[in-house]
């Protein structure tokens, strides 16, 4: 089908551009079925998001898509064009998750560390939209991230340590997720 009069030309392009951690990255020669996780890891050299189940169950591939946590294995790379993708590499480089990283390390919330990048994304999302989340809300927010080592207790403790520290430091929070005009989720 030639890309003629229609406003949705087929085919759209040889490749596409992604905005990852504030940088524009070009993806070329990819198959349309490649997941964002695959594209990040295998094409863009960003192995922070981990590949474990490829079925949305474990959360180890969690990234932020326009500031909202999703499983990168359940997003098509080509459909992430135009969105802002934030990986654990980005969170680390900007230092925005530094206190979370430190609290996880200090409290024994990191053992083998495989799950940690996913937890960083999920905790970042949680504390951005609900800085004062209580334990139930924290548990709920982290229910999509599996950890085979810690038993979760130390991860939960790390979250409350970060909350206490941010409260003490007067860090303003309460960012809302895009499109969530009804109020906090």
């Amino acid at each position: 089908m030639p890309p003629d009069s229609t406003s949705v030309p087929w085919p759209v392009a040889e490749g596409y551009q992604l905005s990852v951690d504030g940088r524009t990255r070009t993806v070329e020669g990819a198959w349309v079925g490649e997941s964002l996780l695959y594209v990040l890891r295998e094409r863009l050299g960003l192995p922070g998001a981990k590949n474990a189940c490829e079925q949305g169950e474990c959360g180890s591939c969690s990234v932020l898509l326009d500031g909202v946590v999703v499983c990168a294995c359940c997003v098509l790379g080509a459909d992430a064009a135009g969105a802002e993708v934030t990986t654990v590499e980005g969170l680390t480089a900007t230092g925005s998750a530094k206190d979370i990283q430190e609290a996880l390390v200090a409290g024994g919330g990191v053992q083998c560390g495989f799950c940690t990048p996913g937890f960083l994304a999920a905790i970042t999302d949680l504390l951005a939209r609900s800085p004062e989340a209580d334990e139930l809300e924290v548990r709920e927010a982290l229910s999509g991230n599996l950890c085979r080592c810690t038993g979760y207790g130390r991860i939960l403790e790390a979250v409350s340590a970060v909350q206490a520290e941010r409260r003490g430091a007067g860090v303003p929070g309460g960012l809302r997720a895009p499109g969530d005009e009804d109020g906090p989720r």
């Binding site: 087929w10 349309v32 079925g33 079925q55 949305g56 294995c73 359940c74 098509l76 459909d79």
Partner: peptide, 21 residues
Amino acid sequence: GGTDFCVEVNFGHRRPAAVVA
């Protein structure tokens, strides 16, 4: 949202040649 679609693709149960997102 891709939560069913991508899992099927990841597991080789679906091989899209063209996608309308």
